[in-house]
């Protein structure tokens, strides 16, 4: 029974891994024969790829870093601060998290247009910073942290920044890494926001490159897909232990 279960798990893993493996293999067989011509065409013929790649890098890293800065005090406030209607507010926060992106994109569009930052990098980064997902996850995680450390730090300082950095952040570090990876993945893969909020092609992301796949062809798309996977794979390899521990929510 144990072997059968293990076999089924391996089989399931293989099914999930198959598209990635196929992409990797096909990138080296652009015309049915082993060749690097696909990579050659991508790297030396398709210059718009680089613009889009660096745009994706800028958006993903900026959103991840800034969102981590925002979610830590927000989650701390929802966990430890005492204010009226805290639970009601958090309830609405969860509802906001459940909203599909397609519902939120129009209000975002109108807001960004009125602020005059439509079709700018800030127009992509700003709405993504305040995503409720990280706050909700981190708030749940904070329920398990040692409150005595926070109380002890409060006796030493009145600075909220110091409290967050010295007493809270070290205790939720694992969860921050896990949330960071999720946020990075979400930002790296975002498609609707650059499609709708950006008109300038010099600001568009790699996902738009794949969306316009008809003008490039398979020869370039498979190698581009492999390159597209690398940043997120590297980040996962860096932080996979923290991701696994963070997801358990009961890390000691």
């Amino acid at each position: 029974m144990k072997h059968l279960l293990r076999f089924l798990l391996y089989l399931l893993a293989a099914v999930f891994f198959l598209p990635t493996l196929a992409t990797l293999l096909l990138s080296f067989f652009p015309e049915g024969e082993l060749s690097l011509s696909g990579y050659d065409d991508l790297f030396f013929d398709c210059f718009s790829f680089y613009t889009m790649f660096w745009n994706s890098v800028i958006y993903a890293y900026a959103i991840t870093a800034l969102q981590l800065v925002v979610i830590l005090p927000a989650a701390f406030a929802f966990s430890f601060a005492r204010f009226k209607h805290k639970e009601t507010l958090f309830f609405f926060y969860i509802i906001l998290m459940m909203m599909p992106l397609q519902v939120m994109i129009l209000p975002n569009y109108i807001g960004l247009r009125d602020m005059g930052i439509l079709n700018t990098r800030a127009g992509i980064i700003l709405p993504m910073i305040f995503s409720p997902f990280g706050v909700v996850v981190l708030r749940q995680y904070m329920k398990n942290i040692d409150a005595s450390v926070i109380e002890a730090t409060r006796l030493e300082t009145n600075s909220m920044v110091r409290l967050l950095l010295h007493a809270v952040a070290p205790q939720v570090q694992v969860c921050l890494y896990a949330v960071g990876i999720f946020v990075f993945a979400e930002s790296w893969n975002m498609l609707e926001q650059p499609m709708l909020l950006l008109q300038d092609k010099n600001l568009k992301t790699l996902t738009i490159f794949f969306n316009n796949s008809t003008s490039y062809g398979d020869q370039i798309l498979y190698p581009a897909s492999v390159v597209f996977m690398i940043p997120i794979l590297l980040l996962y390899l860096f932080f996979h232990r923290e991701l696994e521990r963070g997801l358990t929510l009961h890390d000691s």
Binding site: F43, F44, D45, F47, Y50, F53, W54, V57, V227, I230, P231, L234, L237, F238
Partner: peptide, 23 residues
């Protein structure tokens, strides 16, 4: 991993700067 990341991003930076010249 750090070396790999450095190679990847460094390589992309190099290609971004010189791919059109090489082409």
């Amino acid at each position: 991993l750090l070396l790999l990341s450095l190679l990847f991003y460094g390589g992309m930076l190099f290609l971004s700067a010189f791919a059109d010249d090489i082409h």
